[in-house]
Design a protein around this nucleic acid. Structure first.
Lengths: 134, 134
DNA sequence: TTATCTGCAAACATTTTGCAGCGAG
DNA sequence: CTCGCTGCAAAATGTTTGCAGATAA
C-alpha cells in the first residue's frame, strides 16, 4: 500500500484503459496489449486490473457467465450500465429515482449500509436489426 | 423439454431446497445432501439446479466471487433480494416503481429485451447491533 | 423398451499463486 | 542496494461435458 511503482506494464494498461469506452475482460485487455506489441503476462494484467479496481480507478461488472469486466470510470457519481448482449456496447444510465428507492429500503427493512449492484442487459438497436434479418 | 423424469436425485434436491430459507451454492447443496446420506454426483446437482432455475423454480444470484447461488422462489412475480452481508438473512423486495423505470429505459436507449440483475446488500438490524458492541 | 438421467472423470475457463529474476526508486 | 513487480508455470476454483450404464415411464 505504501509504494506503487510505475512500470512499463502499468503504464501500458492505464493508457489502454483510457482509450477504451466499454467494459473489457482481463483476457481481452491482455490480447489488445499483445496486438500493440506490449508483451505483458496475463497474470500481471489480472493483478494490475484487480489493484486498480480496488483503488477505485475502474468500474467493475460481472457478466452472467462469470467474467469480470473492467472500465475506466469517467463520470463521477453513482450510475449503472446498460450493456448490449450481442456487441458489448455500453450506455451509462443515471436513475436518481432508483437511488431514492433504494435509500428508502433502509427504513422499511431495518438493514443499514444498504449497497447495491444493478446490471442491465439488452440488445441494442443495431444488433436487434442484424438478428432480425438472419 | 418434453419429458421430465422424477428421479431420486431430483426429489432429494427439490425437497432440500424446500427446507432452505436462504441462497446456497451448488457445492453447498451437494454437501448438505451428502450429510443426509443422499449420495448424488456433483455434476447432477449442477445440472438439476441449472435446469430448475431455467424453468423458473429458483431464484438465481451471483456472488462477487463468481459463485452461483440458488434458492426456491417463494413469492410469485418478479422481485429482488436484500441480503445481509453478515448472516445471510434474506428479505424479498418488490419495487414496482423500479420495474417501471427499467421498462422506460427501453424507449430512451433503443435497446430491446432489457433485462436486469439487481442485488442488494446490507447489514441487518441484529448483525448491526452485534458489530457495534464488538 | 427406450429416451432420459446419472455418475465418473476429464475438460474447461477464469483467476490466483509460488518463486526466481528483473528493475524502479 | 532493496523491495516491489513481473513472467512463467502450476494450482485452484467453479462449472460443464462425453460417455457408458442405470432407470423412469
Amino acid at each position: 500500500m505504501i509504494g506503487q511503482r510505475t512500470t512499463r506494464q502499468r503504464r501500458a494498461i492505464g493508457q489502454l484503459m483510457d482509450e477504451l469506452a466499454d467494459f473489457r475482460s482481463a483476457q481481452q485487455i491482455h490480447q489488445l496489449l499483445a496486438q500493440r506489441g506490449e508483451d505483458i503476462g496475463l497474470a500481471t494484467v489480472y493483478r494490475t486490473l484487480g489493484a486498480m479496481a480496488a483503488s477505485g480507478e475502474f468500474d467493475v461488472l460481472r457478466t452472467a457467465t462469470g467474467e469480470t469486466l473492467y472500465r475506466r470510470c469517467e463520470r463521477q457519481g453513482h450510475h449503472h450500465h446498460l450493456v448490449c448482449r450481442s456487441c458489448g456496447r455500453t450506455v451509462e444510465v443515471q436513475a436518481a429515482a432508483f437511488e431514492t428507492l433504494v435509500a428508502s429500503l433502509s427504513d422499511e427493512t431495518g438493514f443499514v449500509d444498504v449497497s447495491h449492484t444493478l446490471e442491465l442487459f439488452g440488445t441494442c438497436a443495431t444488433c436487434a436489426e442484424e438478428l432480425a434479418t438472419s
